[in-house]
Design a protein around this nucleic acid. Structure first.
Length: 543
RNA sequence: GCCCCUGUAGCUCAGUUGGAUAGAGCGGCGGUUUCCUAAACCGUAGGCCACAUGUUCAAGUCAUGUCAGGGGCACCA
């Protein structure tokens, strides 16, 4: 198509690059369509239909093309040949989705940072969305060839951890009959009482404030036990838990030096000893304090150092998954890091996914949540209430990250009984049923036969969708949008259910048709398996 | 007050980066089972794509403004 354009109209390379075709949907305009002729019409000062015809001519000889038409104001509609579609289905059946995607070759090393919640208590519903999202993004990236590391960054050096330790100490004291109060802004959750009880058993003499460090250690350890357990529930794990304290003071001071040398810091004019970061010089709305008068760092500073550290580890892609409450700080961090390493480098490698919050309600009434006050719904509660990790994952992965989520626990429970997850898994299980019935028979995956035999509309819909799967997955990965995978998986399940209901696969009297349809089933099985794998959802052989 | 995100069917959400007649699930109504799993399938009803203006061959999609909801605006994390 591009060759034809160049020959006929002497298009520039840039114009040629803009030529593209997309899936045309169910409107009867072929399988893929291009609207590029209309775009080029202006630049080339030629009627769009004339350009479109040239594009069509360039396509009509190709083996994967069954037919091309020029319709409407200048659309080029392409119908793919059955031979091509069948051969793609055969490849999918033989190599699996992972096999086909693997052929693009390795893409480099990627680091995905997510959850990064501080170890102060169990994970809540809000973290759950992020955990599932980050995990799915990681799976998606590895599916298309990235070598992915997952990292969990946590702040263990700040005041919050002091408060947590003090809260634990207070509970210990109270258990021994004392009257030490939980500190202002401390943690009220019941789980801390459990920690206190256990701590007193092993260290009965522990005392505040002498044993501050031991309280801290105990609290952090217990909190991470909770967090790891919760993540395990959803089958999520990390390659590294990165502690803020590893950066203090060395890496942080070094980062401050670098910012200093770049002229991006200044001492507080009132002589208090505070150090400010000149973010307004970087296009941000406000300067921020990065080192307090007492010498402690504010949240942004170690975070900048952490990002510098990540860059120094030479990843080709850095993905940050954050909640919308971090939007401002992460823009600040981005600006500071860009100033030090160059906007090009940072723009090329760092990508931030900001997801909106989950508002939780029960029967229409909003449930307010706060880890400090101890009022929250935990990830564990949510999974219990929804019924299964698979359904929980799916619910969070059907929406794009920027969409707000209204999550009614009552509705979620009800929905989970008749759920799109089951719908997809059921398609997979139905194929399992066919394979059990067929045994070892009818399993040769020869595309040549199938091309002539799979001509029913439902079969064609399936073939076309199967052919599109690798592209769909690549696009979802490029967009860091796992919700596209849930969409595609549902669509594939619909196509299969439609086919299954209308056509019988096993037909002892017609072995060649049976073989052709078996090929379709095997391809579909691989497709569903691959998509569910990206989502981290199980694919059951029977239900 | 300033910044970010969002507004699409009764509800929850997609919408292929500006394309042709705006889709799905749930809910409503009506149908389908001697047959590889009915957790399925088929049909039907339901829309001022929040509102206004603009950009152009073409706007749910881009720009500006208005309204509404969520989040942020710590020397907490």
């Amino acid at each position: 198509m591009r060759l034809a354009l160049r020959r006929e109209f002497a298009c520039s390379e840039e114009q040629l690059r803009s030529v593209a075709a997309v899936e045309s949907g169910e409107r009867g305009y072929g399988d893929i369509a291009s609207s590029s002729a209309m775009g080029l019409a202006r630049e080339l000062k030629l009627p769009p239909r004339r350009i479109a015809s040239a594009m069509a001519d360039g396509l009509s000889g190709l083996s994967f093309v069954e037919g091309v038409t020029v319709d409407g104001p200048g659309f080029v509609n392409i119908t793919l040949s059955n031979g091509y579609l069948s051969s793609m289905a055969a490849r999918l059946a033989n190599e699996g989705l992972a096999g086909i995607l693997g052929e693009c070759g390795p893409r480099g090393r990627a680091l995905v940072e997510f959850v990064s919640s501080n170890p102060t208590g169990p994970l809540t519903v809000g973290h759950c969305r992020q955990a599932v999202l980050g995990d799915a993004i990681s799976r998606l990236l590895s599916a298309v060839g990235w070598t992915v590391s997952r990292e969990y960054y946590f702040n263990d050096a700040g005041r919050q951890m002091d408060r947590l330790a003090e809260s634990l100490a207070a509970r210990c004291d109270q258990l021994r009959g004392g009257a030490m109060p939980v500190p202002e802004g401390g943690y009220q959750g019941a789980y801390i009482l459990d920690w206190a009880r256990d701590l007193l058993l092993s260290e009965p003499g522990i005392a505040w404030p002498e044993d501050r460090e031991r309280f801290r250690k105990a609290a952090t350890g217990r909190a991470f036990d909770l967090i790891r357990n919760d993540l395990e529930l959803l089958d999520i794990s990390f390659d590294r838990y990165f502690a803020e304290s590893e950066l203090i003071p060395g890496a942080v001071e070094e980062a401050i030096d670098r910012l200093n040398r770049a002229g991006l810091t200044y001492d507080d004019p009132d002589g208090s000893g505070k150090l400010w970061l000149k973010l307004t010089a970087l296009g941000r709305p406000e300067d921020r304090v990065v080192r307090r008068a007492g010498g402690g760092y504010t949240y942004r500073m170690p975070d900048i150092a952490y990002h510098l550290d990540k860059f120094s580890r030479r990843f080709d892609l850095l993905v940050d998954v954050f909640g919308s409450d971090h939007i401002d700080t992460c823009r600040d961090v981005e600006a500071a890091v860009s100033a030090l390493l160059g906007a090009d480098t940072v723009g090329r490698t760092l990508r931030t996914v900001i997801h909106q919050f989950v508002t939780l309600s029960r029967g229409g009434e909003t449930v307010r949540m706060s880890t400090r006050s101890g009022e929250f719904v935990t990830l564990r509660d949510l999974v219990d209430e929804v019924g299964s990790p698979d359904v929980t994952r799916f619910l969070f992965l059907t929406r794009r990250a920027e969409a707000h989520m209204d999550f009614d626990l009552a509705v979620a429970r009800k929905d989970s009984e008749e759920n799109p997850v089951f719908y997809i898994q059921y398609a997979f299980a139905r194929i399992g049923g066919i394979l059990r019935a067929a045994g070892d028979r009818f399993r040769d995956t020869d595309a040549g036969q199938a091309a002539d035999l799979l001509r029913e509309p439902r079969e064609r819909v399936l073939l076309r969708l199967l052919e599109a799967l690798p592209v769909r997955v690549s696009e979802a990965a490029a967009d860091l949008s796992p919700h596209r995978i849930t969409e595609t998986a549902s669509e594939l399940a619909t196509a299969f259910h439609g086919f299954y209901t209308q056509h019988k696969v096993m037909d002892e009297g017609n072995p060649s048709l049976t073989r052709a349809r078996m090929l379709l089933c095997l391809a579909c099985r691989e497709g569903l398996k691959g998509l569910l794998e990206v989502l981290g959802i199980s694919a059951p052989e029977r239900m």
